[in-house]
């Protein structure tokens, strides 16, 4: 990075030149006091419960790890398409503002490609959070194994159901790799381990809350042997519970004829639902660990640490299924 500025720097006065040089290098592992790495954050808000938490932790870890966060720039939640295009613009504007690394949660795994290429050309390393990209290269991906999410969730339903039947899966927006992975995981475990169960999937465009609840309502009406509902994210859960009550199909966890409900995210609200026996289980996506490691790796990127291609690091961000009265992994909240 220093070579980029190199020639021009010499033309300027010496004082300015050295300052630029120092910032350009990101100042190697020894922090030189006045140079805090500047990191830009681009998110999409498709899972408000999760990302809300993420923010709080990001704030916390920002000071802890000593970085300056620019943004986050957020593409509209539940809005129609074009978040990908918006994110590409956001990436450009952050780079123009002089960030040294980027943390991105792509709205669309493939469409984020041009933004990644642009960042690479500008020499800004990118850490993606929660969603992997399918095109373009990044410095580090901080995500969980979403396929395992799906697998664990549907496994839980099938293993705890009173009898074989159908599981309704309310999927998120299938343009997101996360949703696709979770769907795959669920379908896989059911077909392999529980052959006398079926999965009926309903897609929800843009992770819309009302359409999701509508899908669940349709499932409640249309599927006679409904044993459980697996919903890919946490926001519709209340609505689904309300719909069940309306149709007189609701019973607390453990009751007879109970239709199981398993969600995702692990937000505090879900913990409340589990405690009050409305929700069977949820996957704990530890927002805190996401936040921490996103910043950590972004900082490493600025520092110039190299990682091998495909190297995975285990930070214990494994899917933890939160169930009633089970223990929870490390981390605040819940």
């Amino acid at each position: 990075m220093s070579t980029l500025f190199g020639r021009r720097v010499r033309a300027l006065s010496a004082v300015v030149g050295t300052a630029l040089l120092a910032v350009g290098c990101g100042g190697s592992p020894t922090p030189s006091g006045s140079t805090t790495p500047k990191i830009g954050v681009v998110l999409t808000y498709n899972l408000p419960g999760f990302w809300g938490n993420y923010f709080k932790y990001e704030d916390q870890y920002r000071t802890q790890l000593g970085v300056e966060i620019v943004g986050p720039k957020v593409a509209n939640v539940e809005a129609n398409g074009n978040e990908a295009a918006q994110q590409i613009l956001d990436v450009r504007s952050l780079i123009a503002q002089g960030v040294q690394a980027l943390i991105i949660n792509p709205a669309d795994s493939a469409a984020i490609g041009p933004a990644l290429d642009y960042a690479k050309r500008k020499g800004v390393p990118v850490v993606t959070v929660d969603v992997a990209r399918s095109q373009g290269s990044v410095y580090m991906i901080v995500r969980a194994d979403n396929t395992a999410y799906g697998t664990k969730s549907c496994d839980y339903i099938a293993s705890h159901a009173t009898s074989p039947g159908t599981i309704a899966m309310v999927e998120g927006d299938l343009t997101s790799l996360n949703a696709r992975d979770r769907a795959t995981g669920c379908q896989a475990v059911i077909s392999q381990k529980y052959p006398n169960f079926k999965v009926q999937a309903y897609q929800t465009k843009d992770w819309g809350t009302d359409p999701a609840v509508q899908n669940a309502t349709t499932a409640l009406t249309a599927i006679t042997d409904l044993r459980g509902i697996y919903v890919h994210w946490s926001v519709p859960e209340d609505g689904i519970i309300a719909a069940e009550k309306q149709k007189n199909k609701y019973s607390d966890v453990g009751g007879s004829n109970h239709i199981m409900l398993v969600g995702n995210d692990g937000s505090p609200h879900e913990c409340d639902l589990i405690r009050s026996k409305n929700l069977d289980a949820t996957i704990d996506q530890p927002a805190d660990k996401y936040a921490y490691y996103a910043i950590f790796y972004a900082k490493q990127a600025v520092a110039g640490t190299k990682y091998n291609d495909g190297q995975t690091t285990d930070h214990n961000i494994d899917p933890i299924l939160l169930v009633p009265r089970a223990g929870r992994g490390s981390g605040p909240g819940g």
């Binding site: 539940e78 009302d210 926001v235 609505g239």
Partner: peptide, 16 residues
């Protein structure tokens, strides 16, 4: 009505 159905008010209610 929609908020009541979903028993929550999301930030994206009304989109599209």
């Amino acid at each position: 009505m929609q908020a009541g159905r979903v028993t929550a008010v999301t930030a994206g209610q009304g989109s599209n």
